[in-house]
Computed example of a mutant assay.
Amino acid sequence: METANASRYLVQLCTHAAKVGDHLQHGHLRGAHARPEVRGVEYSDTHGTLDLSWGRCVLDVDPDGLTIRVDADTEDHLRGIQDIIAADLQRFGHRDSVAVTWQPPRVQHDEEA
């Protein structure tokens, strides 16, 4: 996500997840996906980790903006987490017209391992 306010959005997303985590596990719906349970949130001004029942979201501030990596246990959960994260960040950054652009995962070849 390209933005000059990456740290602010990282902190805002992590704070939001920590505050509403208890409510999200009770079947709160957003679009077609139920929200996963928030199991843990850790963050600083430059790095954040959301541990969710469906997977994990890692956020890092870099010179171009905010890099977001999502790992999930199924393809549906991956898309669900991506949808939730993108919707929340776009809602937080509506005045800045922020947009989250997801890249396909990189495949690691055996010689890279």
Rank of each mutant, 00 (worst) to 15 (best):
A4N: 14
A4Q: 13
N5V: 05
S7N: 09
R8W: 15
L10P: 06
V11C: 07
Q12D: 15
Q12Y: 13
C14V: 09
C14I: 02
T15E: 06
H16W: 08
H16T: 11
H16A: 05
A17R: 02
K19T: 09
V20L: 12
V20T: 14
D22S: 14
H23E: 14
H23D: 11
H23L: 10
Q25E: 13
Q25D: 15
H26L: 02
G27Q: 10
G27P: 06
L29N: 08
L29R: 02
L29T: 06
R30S: 13
A32S: 14
H33T: 08
H33A: 08
A34P: 11
A34L: 06
A34M: 12
R35T: 03
R35D: 01
V38K: 01
G40E: 08
E42C: 06
D45E: 03
D45H: 00
D45N: 07
H47Q: 12
H47C: 00
H47P: 01
G48D: 04
G48M: 04
G48L: 05
D51M: 08
S53W: 06
G55I: 10
G55A: 08
R56N: 06
C57A: 09
V58L: 05
V58N: 10
D60T: 10
D60C: 01
V61W: 03
V61M: 01
P63Y: 01
G65M: 03
G65K: 03
G65F: 01
L66T: 03
L66P: 01
R69W: 07
R69C: 03
V70T: 07
A72P: 02
A72G: 06
D73N: 10
T74L: 09
E75N: 14
E75D: 14
H77D: 11
L78D: 09
L78V: 11
R79C: 00
I81R: 02
I81V: 10
Q82K: 08
I84R: 05
I84G: 01
I84A: 12
I85M: 04
D88H: 12
L89M: 15
F92P: 04
H94D: 13
H94W: 12
D96Y: 03
S97T: 13
S97E: 09
A99H: 12
T101N: 14
W102V: 12
W102H: 13
Q103R: 15
Q103N: 08
Q103H: 15
Q103D: 13
P105R: 15
Q108P: 05
Q108I: 14
H109P: 08
H109W: 15
D110T: 14
D110G: 08
D110A: 07
D110E: 05
E111V: 14
E111Y: 05
E111I: 13
A113C: 14
A113Y: 15
